[in-house]
Design a protein around this nucleic acid. Structure first.
Length: 657
RNA sequence: GCUCCCGUAGCUCAGUUGGAUAGAGCAACGGAUUUCUAAUCCGUCGGUCGCGUGUUCGAAUCACGCCGGGAGUACCA
């Protein structure tokens, strides 16, 4: 039961007498912002009265009198300029709560018309170890997958892994020239990662050496230009002053950018020159970038040796990825990587050309979208396909074969331009019925608020992030357990299990609780915080219910099957029960714009209200047996909703902590 | 140059397609434990919602213009 939805439906029936478009008006029924205004409020009368030239308060009273709400609300009140305030009837809340307490789905009815949804997320490059940058896509995507599925949609998760790109050529080149056989035997993926980094570093070295003189010249020129502009007298005219200020700023920013580039290139060169072995290696492989590209090209054209290497590397790489996903509790229904679509790419380009969508330009094959300057390159000058081509082939497959209604791409906001072009091209190509959505999220920034760059060297690996989170959690678990008044009651394995759930939950929650659009500042303390608005708080509330149940030796299953009835006398009980009834609302809220933080908000509020209930309403020592049963049922329902809600975010619960 | 995003309390952020007196967490300070887990609860302090103009009954939210920060922008994905 979605209360909000129910109220809107009831109002809509009346509103159709007032407007040909009652739905948008009914949308203006909201949860009340202030408890004094009741539980829900209708805000549409002011706008409606305006368009009809009526008095809003009179209109509000008129509509309020017509709406059939008697079973679920107290008589509506009109307040202020024409708000209709709605307060739910206690009996109605009680009846709904009792129903919800017995409902295995926690009061969430499946959607009437399920959609076929494909959620595309995580998409790491198999050649490189996963790092914090992959976290957001993986965690947000997994949560959306679970939530949409729970709402009743037919959802498929797909890990569109990068297993066919330039990086593979680099690994193959590294494998052929720099392999440490013993290290590869011991830890294949670790050695491949080392090879990737090595090739990347040497490539970067040559690039930097080649670019440095030019960069230095440009930097010096920028410095001179900036100095010269500064030396000029300040004009007296106000407009000219502003213009000068702007110009100076621009020159300063150019200077800074070039200074950074020089510094970065110098650093790359210095790093290699500081290590004689590296330098020697670089000298022996002057064409490394070009050679690595050739290895990629050979792989793509079916070269037997490189294909054999690819087949040799892939299982190891995938196994390493899966170990990480296992630990994070993330699973995919399919993992169709770039290589999977390789055979289909030529046909995509041909088709685009035939339909007149793609044209030759500077030797490349591009789609041009009117109004957009940048081309959408589906085939490079050297004949290779790009990720644009792969993405188009993927859409074709997802629509033609999988019959997708909706495809979510959970990808960094910086790829917004790519998706804009991709979706536009797909439409023109004929894929109009499918809803393609870029579920974008903010960039991970460093502590200095500057974008967190993968190649900066200071990459925080996902593995070490998780280890750190778990060990921090373990320390808290130990401390807390030993401080218990009755004495510690957890053995080592129990503590470790709790630490895993709490630590990993903390990481996920930190990501999910933030509006996905905003940039994310990477901070150990924030990501691993275990007090306040964190997963731990919800897990703790859950564990407290389990504590009550344990202490009272209650069989929760039997409790639900029994005849106990929820009664809501104390304000804390009412507040909690009403909050629990809004579970469905919260999930619908997530689905509306694919924002998991709507669910984290709900969970936090729920745990909050439970804590208040816990302080004020003794359960096992309730005054009467029926009150005890009522509170047990309410606590059980709270636990089930918390457990369900957290699990929809991919966060585990533990019975004691 | 063009396109896009961001600017809310000391810090990190919410703010549900415009609603009533802008909310949390952290930090600071003060309380609460003979009572089901104090990883908690209750309270205090803290804000020209970057600035300005406009749209209207009503703006943190919408439009336009500034200021400040960031991202993307032809063959990497």
């Amino acid at each position: 039961m979605n209360i909000l939805h129910e109220l809107r439906t009831r109002f809509e029936r009346v509103l159709s007498d007032y407007s040909p478009e009652p739905a948008p008006l009914a949308q203006q029924i909201r949860m009340a912002q202030d408890a004094r205004f009741g539980d829900y409020q209708a805000n549409f009368t002011m706008a409606l009265a305006k368009s009809r030239g009526a008095n809003p308060q009179e209109l509000a009273r008129e509509i309020a009198a017509k709406v059939d709400l008697a079973d679920l609300c107290e008589p509506p009140e009109v307040a202020g300029p024409g708000f209709i305030n709605l307060r739910l009837r206690p009996e109605w809340i009680v009846a709904q709560s009792n129903r919800q307490a017995r409902d295995p789905r926690c009061g969430v009815d499946p959607v009437a018309q399920p959609l076929k949804v494909i959620v595309d997320y995580s998409s790491p490059n198999v050649a490189k170890p996963m790092h914090v940058g992959h976290l957001r896509s993986s965690v947000i995507g997994d949560a959306l997958y679970r939530i949409l599925k729970y709402l009743g949609h037919e959802v498929v998760s797909d890990n569109h892994i990068g297993d066919w790109g330039t990086q593979f050529g680099m690994i193959i080149y590294g494998y052929k020239h720099f392999l440490d056989q013993a290290a590869y035997q011991a830890n294949p993926v670790g050695e491949l990662a080392r090879l990737y980094r090595l090739v990347n570093q040497v490539e970067g070295y040559h690039e930097a050496v080649a670019a440095l003189p030019g960069l230095k010249d440009r930097f010096a020129a920028a410095e001179r230009a900036h100095a010269a502009a500064r030396a000029e007298p300040n004009p007296t005219d106000k407009k000219a002053q502003e213009q000068r200020k702007k110009q100076l700023k621009q020159l300063a920013s150019e200077e800074t950018t070039l200074r950074d580039e020089v510094a970065s290139a110098t650093k790359k060169v210095a790093a290699v020159e500081a290590a004689p072995q590296l330098l020697e290696l670089a000298r022996r492989h002057p064409q490394i970038a070009e050679e690595a590209r050739l290895e990629t090209a050979r792989l793509h054209s079916g070269d037997a040796g490189n294909t054999r290497l690819w087949n040799q590397f892939m299982p190891e790489c995938l196994a390493a990825l899966n170990r990480m996903y296992d630990r994070l509790g993330i699973r995919f229904d399919m993992a169709l990587g770039e290589s999977h679509y390789q055979p289909a790419l030529a046909a995509v380009v041909e088709d685009l050309k035939q339909k007149g969508l793609a044209v030759d330009s500077d030797g490349a094959v591009c789609v041009f979208i009117p109004g957009v300057e940048a081309p959408f390159i589906v085939r490079k000058r050297d004949g290779a396909f790009t990720y644009a081509t792969t993405d188009l082939a993927t859409i074709r497959d997802r629509v033609d074969r999988l019959h997708a209604d909706l495809v979510l791409y959970v990808v960094d906001a910086r790829q917004g331009d790519h998706f804009k072009l991709l979706f536009e091209t797909a439409q023109r190509w004929g894929y109009r019925s499918v809803d393609l959505r870029h579920v974008s999220f903010g960039t991970i920034l460093g502590d200095d608020r500057r974008p967190y760059k993968t190649r900066s060297g200071d990459v925080v690996g996902l593995e070490s992030l998780i280890d750190e989170a778990v060990s921090r959690a373990r320390r808290i678990v130990d401390e807390n357990d030993e401080r218990k008044p009755q004495g510690a009651d957890l053995d080592d394995s129990a503590r470790q299990k709790i630490a895993e759930a709490v630590g990993i939950g903390a990481i996920k929650y930190a990501d999910l609780s933030q509006n996905r659009e905003t940039d994310y500042i990477f901070s150990w303390d924030k990501m691993l915080a275990l007090t306040g608005d964190t997963a731990t708080y919800m897990q703790y509330a859950y564990a407290r219910v389990c504590g009550i149940v344990r202490r009272g030796e209650i069989d929760r299953e039997l409790l639900r099957q029994g005849s106990a009835q929820i009664q809501l006398e104390h304000p804390a009980e009412r507040a909690l029960a009403l909050q629990l009834l809004r579970f469905h609302e919260a999930l619908d809220g997530v689905a509306l714009d694919f924002r998991p933080n709507v669910l984290t908000n709900w969970l936090f509020e729920t745990a909050n209200r439970f804590s208040t209930f816990f302080e004020n309403c003794p359960v096992l020592k309730a005054e009467t047996e029926s009150l005890k049963q009522s509170r047990l049922l309410l606590a059980d329902l709270t636990a089930r909703c918390l457990e369900r809600g957290l699990s929809l975010l991919g966060i585990e619960t533990i019975d004691r902590m």
